[in-house]
Amino acid sequence: MKIEKSERLKSLPPYLFKEIDRQKDEARARGIDIIDLGVGDPDMPTPPHIIRELEKAANDPANHQYPSYTGMDAFNKAVAGWYEKRFKVDLDPSKEVVTLIGSKEGIAHIPLAFINPGDMALVPNPGYPVYEIGVNFAGGDVCFMNLLKENDYLPDLDAVPEEVAQKTKLMFINYPNNPTSAVAGMSFFDKLVSYAKKHDIIICHDAAYTEMAFDGYKPISFLEADGAMEVGMEFHSLSKTYNMTGWRIGFAVGNAEVIQALGQVKSNIDSGAFQAVQLAGITALEGDQTCIDEMNGIYTERRDLLVDGLRELGLTAKKPKATFYVWIDVPDGYTSSEFASHLLTKAGVVATPGNGFGTAGEGYIRMALTVDNERIKEVLKRIKETGF
């Protein structure tokens, strides 16, 4: 029997982090001690009070049945309460909140609710690969918005051709940004609202990193902008905030029609998030938040150690105000992929090539602050010994 993949699967490049895993496995097979700064997966454990709630909830048979497709009322109310407390954004938990099995799932599914073949979506370049993949799966076309250093890695909306804007149904943005770690202020979000209203574009803001911030900086929500609830929505996740990447729990909030449409897609595709995980999520959102400050303090130490050390080695890197990513200029004579390969094969250090996030990421690599200080010191020692 001949097994043939669909054209949509054939058209996809290897998923970036799956390819990185393959390269790591090959290096380990050669006996190399790998220090992984590639995938942004927190190395610190989930806070104990959240784990205790999961243990309790998992032992309750009431949580062993199918959950609600769009989330428990109690979890959605906790999300609304957290948004009001954190951002002063008022949400109706019954209409403007939907529970996700991690924000990645929602990002991949939102195009299915709005994109028809021939429709367009505006996607940041470099950017999280799932924005483009979700649009492609829905049969839409992508127009990339280049994020350039000279523009502080904010998209130039004026550079989008008018004929593209007229065909665009969705725009993905992401601040604090992965992979560049750039941040956005209210003036940009205000401009975004005006642009969306002018062209009837739904803004989909991936806000997964708003709680990973340093030096007193507090990222804002797109929904704080005047009129944002009329034109868009926001994805959020407990993954990075509470070290819960493996738990797969997140949420989307915003415009009621947009949220309800995403919920309609989900009700036909999945059966909701495990209730015990949702109950643990409530504890995370409503419980003691000092765990966030403690984790950010650790990331601050790691950031300073890594960036200062890279600068001493002659590499150019800016200390991020938010996210746990460091965006590093590739030295002369290398492409992004060549330098990432050099670090892996010669130093046993995994970094993500910037061009894996899009063509505008060429010339950079990304390192994640996901190992302790001693391993960061080892990274710097190995790079120094290896040279470049």
Rank of each mutant, 00 (worst) to 15 (best):
A27P: 06
A27I: 10
D36W: 09
M44W: 14
T46I: 15
P47K: 10
I51K: 12
E55N: 09
A58L: 14
N59I: 02
A80P: 10
E84V: 06
K104P: 00
K104T: 11
E105Y: 11
P111W: 03
I115R: 04
G118Q: 04
D119G: 05
A121I: 04
N125Q: 06
G140S: 09
D141C: 04
F144D: 05
Y153G: 07
E162H: 06
Y175V: 06
G185C: 03
F188W: 08
L192G: 01
L192T: 07
D200W: 01
I203W: 02
C204S: 09
G216F: 03
Y217F: 15
K218F: 10
S221F: 00
D226W: 02
A228E: 00
E230T: 04
N243E: 04
N243F: 07
G246S: 12
V253E: 08
A261M: 07
K266G: 03
I269G: 00
Q278W: 10
Q278R: 08
G281P: 11
C291T: 15
I292R: 12
D293N: 12
E294G: 05
G314E: 02
Y325K: 11
V326W: 00
V330N: 05
P331R: 00
D332T: 05
Y364M: 04
L380M: 04
G387L: 00
